[in-house]
């Protein structure tokens, strides 16, 4: 597929907007999983604005690509995406976490239009995606099942049960993406429960691994293109990311797994996001000569 300049600029802009909307949503919600949401925004942006074959006017379309947010705690980052796509009114984001709201910390697919799985208990998503993929294959459908996992989440044995089965069933229609921000709740992943050599683990389970800068849209496009085409072996994309990416005050700090954001802080964070994206764009232009 690749990414042309125009598309790149539009997606960069989208990622910037979504980061800011995430900060606002955390503010409206009275708190939220801001760190892991901001680390995943670039991945979500590419999936929802470039790759996924979905129809907003027909959210239950049987042939649509599926997406399972296995790290289900980042509803504050994912609901803005679904709202911005037009699955529901953005105004709803202002009710996030309020009693009776359809939007709570972990999103509920029976309440949130456009959501394919209710997640929040870690370690389920990759198996759900596998089931969708196996089902799709049996039904003769061509859709992909994308799954986004946290790296801390990969402590769960169930993730590896899914990995083993994806390779065994050659379910190359599952696209496995791990948000490798190297942070969890109680600390950095390598301090709490070491994952390294992480890529080797996925390889040993039968995957082809692509490690990529999870905040570089060109690089992400390249590996997603590759994973989508792969037929022999399933591909695991390890996206190197920064928790809290874009907000200098909280970036790469595991203590901001969950935080509340005041109005003042939100303004400051959004300014930092602009600075981050301005800088990122400049660097990108430079490297492209």
């Amino acid at each position: 597929m690749g990414l042309n300049k125009e598309e790149f600029l539009a997606l960069e802009n989208k990622a910037r907007e979504l980061r800011k909307l995430t900060v606002d949503t955390v503010m409206w919600a009275g708190g939220g999983h801001i760190g892991g949401a901001l680390s995943a925004i670039d991945i979500l942006t590419l999936l929802y604005y470039k790759y996924m074959n979905i129809d907003v006017s027909n959210p239950k379309w049987e042939d649509r690509d599926r997406f399972v947010l296995s790290k289900g705690h980042i509803g504050v980052g994912f609901a803005p995406v679904l709202a911005d796509k037009g699955f529901f009114d953005k105004e709803l984001l202002k009710t996030y976490n309020h009693t009776y709201s359809k939007l709570g910390m972990h999103l509920d697919k029976n309440k949130v239009v456009g959501l394919d799985a209710s997640t929040g208990s870690l370690g389920h998503g990759l198996s759900i995606a596998l089931g969708m993929a196996l089902g799709g294959r049996l039904l003769g459908k061509n859709f992909k099942a994308y799954c986004l996992l946290g790296d801390g989440e990969c402590n769960e044995g169930s993730v590896w049960e899914a990995a083993m089965a994806i390779a065994h069933f050659k379910a190359t229609n599952v696209i496995t993406i791990i948000d490798r921000n190297k942070c969890m709740i109680d600390g950095r992943t390598e301090d709490v429960m070491g994952l390294e050599p992480f890529a080797d683990k996925w390889e040993a389970f039968g995957f082809e691994v692509r490690t990529v800068d999870g905040h570089d849209l060109y690089a992400l496009t390249e590996v997603l293109d590759y994973a989508i085409k792969a037929q022999n072996k399933p591909v695991a994309i390890i996206a190197d990311t920064l928790k809290g990416c874009g907000v200098a005050d909280i970036q790469d700090d595991y203590r901001y797994h969950y935080a509340s954001v005041s109005e003042d802080a939100a303004a400051k964070y959004k300014k930092q996001i602009d600075e981050y994206h301005d800088k990122r764009l400049k660097l990108q232009e430079k490297s492209n000569g």
Partner: peptide, 8 residues
């Protein structure tokens, strides 16, 4: 953990 929903 009211706001976290049924998973929590």
């Amino acid at each position: 953990f009211g706001q976290a929903g049924s998973t929590h």
